[in-house]
């Protein structure tokens, strides 16, 4: 059964598909430019020493996002 959660809740090492963006304005645009459209597979790779930000694999690239930003990304795991 698929369940919806926000990207920051995704445990390190697991993956999910994007189901919506809550962020607005420039950040939304940037996330889309990075290829984070609905249905995109995102994998949580590792966290920084303090636990935030976390690096995600998005379409072959490694992108670090802060917790408050990844909390604006809905995913289905």
């Amino acid at each position: 059964m698929n369940r919806t959660l926000t990207l920051n809740q995704l445990p390190i090492g697991s993956q999910a598909r994007v189901s919506g963006l809550l962020s607005q304005g420039r950040m939304r645009r940037r996330l889309l430019d990075l290829g984070l459209v609905d249905g995109t597979l995102v994998k949580s790779i590792y966290a920084s020493p303090s636990g935030d930000p976390v690096a995600y694999e998005i379409r072959g690239a490694l992108i670090a996002l802060r917790g408050e930003d990844s909390a604006q990304i809905l995913v289905e795991a």
Partner: peptide, 8 residues
């Protein structure tokens, strides 16, 4: 602090 993305 505002949002940002950092590519590694």
């Amino acid at each position: 602090p505002s949002s940002f993305t950092l590519e590694m």
